[in-house]
């Protein structure tokens, strides 16, 4: 077998291991779905009545209109949430003796990380499906064509891959499981300072500038455009650029951190 075949085979083995872990320990997945669902219900039913009436550039008023506006942002929040779960998962895994065993075996080393990343992307897609169903239940009415749906799935997958690599790096550099759960917190807050919950036009000066120039706003606007037909403009290209950049940073950082861990195992 060639090196590439070995690399694929080892990565598939590691993926199977991670999927088994998710099945055996489903509470983490439930928690990852639960958080965005709580946000969705809270914002639609508590704030939706007020906010929904005052959305510039959004058709309709009230809770239903706000559900439409909110849903794409909540889907991105779901993806961020699963990524933070990955940081915790990988930090926990690194404390296990079996990782040291893997390092003494003639395997394709990055397969350990690939298994985590692919597993996490699958987990986040499952979470996104759940959250989408709940969103449809509270009045989200996308008007996307099949092609636009496909593109939306692609955008979510792209965001998930990028954030997961970043989360893997954060999980590897964290010295404890606790710090691994705290390090990605800023990521969870970023969508709030973007266009997830309100249009950026409604924000005060400096905050608005920040919201317009951070990665989550173009990503959310792209998704919103695909699902609801709002204008996408340059947001699509900017999103792809951000995701590529974040993925590359996360990948390089994660690989370096993983190799550095070899140099200082627990004695």
């Amino acid at each position: 077998m060639s090196t590439v075949t070995f690399a694929l085979r080892d990565s598939a083995t590691m993926l199977r291991r991670n999927l088994r872990h998710m099945r055996r320990y489903p509470s983490l997945t439930f928690m990852l779905v639960g958080m965005p669902v709580v946000f969705l219900l809270l914002f639609v039913y508590v704030f939706g009545g007020t906010v929904g009436g005052n959305l510039p550039g959004v058709d309709g008023t009230g809770r239903r209109a706000y559900a439409d506006y909110l849903a794409p942002g909540i889907l991105v929040v779901t993806v961020v949430g699963t990524a933070t779960g990955t940081a915790i998962g990988i930090a926990m895994d690194m404390t296990e003796g079996i990782i040291a065993r893997f390092r003494t075996m003639a395997i394709f080393r990055p397969s350990i990380l690939f298994g985590h990343v692919v597993g996490a992307v699958i987990q986040s897609m499952i979470a996104v499906v759940f959250v989408t169903v709940v969103a449809l239940g509270v009045g989200f009415r996308p008007n996307a064509s099949p092609v636009e749906w496909l593109a939306a799935v692609g955008v979510i997958a792209m965001v998930s891959v990028a954030l997961t690599w970043l989360a893997v790096a954060l999980g590897l550099v964290a010295r404890t499981v606790e710090s691994a759960s705290n390090l990605p917190m800023p990521l969870l807050l970023l969508p709030f300072f973007g266009s997830a919950f309100v249009p950026t036009d409604t924000l005060p000066g400096p905050l608005r500038w920040f919201a317009d120039h951070q990665p989550f706003t173009p990503i959310i606007e792209t998704l919103r455009g695909l699902l609801l037909g709002t204008a996408i403009g340059a947001h699509g290209v900017v999103s792809v650029a951000w995701c590529l950049g974040i993925a590359l940073l996360g990948f390089v950082w994660a690989r370096a951190a993983f190799e550095r861990n070899v140099a200082r195992p627990a004695r």
């Binding site: 077998m1 070995f6 085979r9 080892d10 083995t13 199977r16 291991r17 088994r20 872990h21 055996r24 320990y25 296990e96 003796g97 079996i98 040291a100 065993r101 893997f102 075996m105 395997i107 627990a266």
Partner: peptide, 22 residues
């Protein structure tokens, strides 16, 4: 320190090793 996967069964742990040894 124990180098077994705590979330897998005994047989699955052995199978995991078999897969990694190709």
């Amino acid at each position: 320190f124990s180098a077994v996967d705590g979330l897998l069964t005994g047989a699955e742990n052995l199978r995991l090793m078999a897969d990694l040894h190709h």
